[in-house]
């Protein structure tokens, strides 16, 4: 065993990259759930975003257009979910699961001609002298633009939800849609916008996988990342900054276990492999353990109208 082979600097740097796709998808889903909608189709939207972004980036030669297309693709797919659940009042759980299956199928159809092609490279941002600072420079200032945009989006989501009128309306719709409706807010419209935001974020997360992290297109390449994003939202008890923590924790453990294996750690590999999932489950259990007063912590934090259909009768 040679633990000195693991460089904490490189580890933290790869952690930030590994966490970005799930962070994006989880942030989107957080906003959706804050508006009172449960969309289990994150995996489907991610993979659709992954192929839309990949295809457009390859065709235009520009990763920027690729990411825009990924956001649009994810949002469009989520719009199907939005129309079905908000106007036709279909069951959100079933529709979300169907969306995942549909997204996986659609993406492999769209991706037929893109297997084995290399996408245009995404340049890392050049911070000049900042990147030369020992440790911090390598960890923080050697990434591509999307890593920083994602962090900004995380802080932005937090600020909007906490300090702005728009955030207040979104939360009101999620907590009590009847009251929000009585106050004159357009519940369905707010929810549709939230759903599309969620779809766009999931799409961006998928494109980050296909354009930067992997980078290539293969069918089924998200391999469950969307489900992890869903778990992280609960893990974070619907708070954006905790989503960041959750995503970094999950990304960190994932990268760390591979590094520990490569360094030849004596812990059985099975434990290392399952550790990211075990930790996620453990925290979920702790989060939902009952508190004084009998209510579970997670259910205290969950938007009260989560997963409930709204139909204005007048």
């Amino acid at each position: 065993m040679d633990l000195s082979a693991i460089s904490p600097t490189l580890l933290l740097a790869s952690l930030m990259v590994a966490a970005t796709p799930i962070l994006l998808a989880a942030l989107g889903e957080l906003v959706v759930e804050k508006s009172g909608v449960l969309n289990l189709g994150v995996e489907g939207m991610m993979i659709t975003g992954a192929i839309c972004g990949f295809a457009i980036a390859v065709e235009t030669g520009s990763p920027v257009f690729g990411f825009i297309a990924a956001a649009l693709g994810g949002a469009l797919l989520s719009l199907i979910f939005g129309l079905l659940t908000q106007y036709l009042l279909s069951n959100q759980v079933a529709t979300g699961l169907a969306l995942t299956l549909f997204g996986l199928g659609l993406s492999s159809l769209l991706g037929q001609g893109y297997v084995g092609i290399r996408p245009p490279a995404v340049e890392k941002l050049n911070f000049g002298p900042l990147a030369d600072i020992p440790f911090i420079g390598r960890v923080l200032f050697t990434h591509d633009l999307m890593v920083y945009l994602t962090l900004a989006l995380c802080v932005g989501t937090w600020a909007v939800l906490k300090f702005t009128r728009a955030g207040l309306i979104l939360r009101a719709v999620g907590e009590n849609h009847d009251a929000a409706h009585a106050l004159g807010y357009k519940v369905v419209k707010v929810r549709l916008l939230a759903i599309m935001f969620g779809g766009a974020c999931a799409g961006l997360g998928g494109a980050y996988l296909s354009l930067i992290r992997v980078p290539q297109w293969t069918e089924g390449m998200t391999a469950g990342a969307g489900w992890i994003a869903l778990a992280i939202v609960v893990f974070a008890s619907w708070r954006p900054l905790r989503v960041l923590l959750g995503a970094y924790l999950f990304g960190g453990v994932t990268v760390l276990q591979l590094n520990l294996q490569a360094a030849g750690l004596a812990i059985p590999v099975e434990y290392l492999s399952m550790s990211p999932y075990l930790i996620t489950i453990a925290v979920l259990v702790i989060m939902s353990a009952p508190r004084k007063g009998g209510k579970a912590r997670a259910s205290l934090a969950a938007p009260a109208c989560l997963g409930r259909a709204f139909h204005a009768s007048h």
């Binding site: 490189l10 996988l209 294996q261």
Partner: peptide, 27 residues
């Protein structure tokens, strides 16, 4: 030889991470 067990036949993101971890450790 450094061996990393990925416990999957197919997971591009994980395979890429495993390769990156090995390369960062000098492979």
């Amino acid at each position: 030889f450094s061996v990393v067990w990925a416990y999957t036949w197919f997971d591009p993101a994980k395979e890429a991470d495993a390769a990156t971890a090995l390369i960062e450790q000098g492979a």
